[in-house]
Amino acid sequence: MRQKTIDEGWTTVIKPREKLLNVDFGELWRYRDLCSLFVRRNITTQYKQTVLGPLWYIIQPIITVVMYMVVFGGIAKIPTDGLPQPLFYLGGICLWQYFSECLNKTSSTFTANAGIFGKVYFPRLIVPISTVISNLLRFGIQLGLFFVVYAIYQIWIIPGQIHTSWYALLLPILVIMLAGLALGFGILFSSMTTKYRDMTLLLSYFVSLWMYATPVIYPLSTITNSKLHFVMSLNPLTGIVEAFKYGMLGEGQFSWGMLGYSFVFMVVLLALGIIIFNRVQRTFMDTV
């Protein structure tokens, strides 16, 4: 009892090891202002001292779409489920770029911020979270581009032939799932590479390969081999990209099962990522 009274009033306790699941979400919430400032910083400083500024957000996907039309559509003649190529590619690119950008940025959280992290404490998770949020702007602009192209096709070029369904309303959930997956993979990766950097050398390579395992440049329906089809659906991104195309463009293989799998995958991954990240953040300064 006496011990208890003495212990009262301690507001900060620093110990060598926290319990595994001791993630302080309250603290994360208290630092929300920092998160919003990081988001603003990420956005405003990205295109400082460039002439075209945020126009780059649009130029990049346009060039990529043209490249894909030439290489995959024109030369390799990969079908697009009967959809206009620009629309098909653009939709995939929007989703994929958001995912890969978030993953690439969050995966270097520790190494890229070692300077700040070594000098002051704040919940480290703020940094990857703000990265994922600030990338939403770019995603939003690219999605806007997608809608413009969509409108052009739907109204003038092939009026009424794109069968958008109510499933398009799933979009916000799909984005949250993409963000969650990118964040989960990113922080997990970042935690594992503070000491051994071998994997960082592989990441960007791995991510670019990953795109080919995701139905971005081809529809899932072209995969007729059932084994390959099964392997493809193990990729948590497959369900998301297909659901997007199904909802928006009316073509694709939508299944609640695949979407549910992606969702559960995301939740487990995120939980695992946060636990490991939380553990690593306490001593990573000694090894980074």
Binding site: T11, T12, V13, P16, F117, V120, T283, D286
Partner: peptide, 15 residues
């Protein structure tokens, strides 16, 4: 300042 964790021991502080 919680930049790194101790190997052993605890620090307790008020405020």
């Amino acid at each position: 300042s919680k930049v790194t964790a101790p190997t052993t021991g605890t620090i307790r502080a008020r405020g």
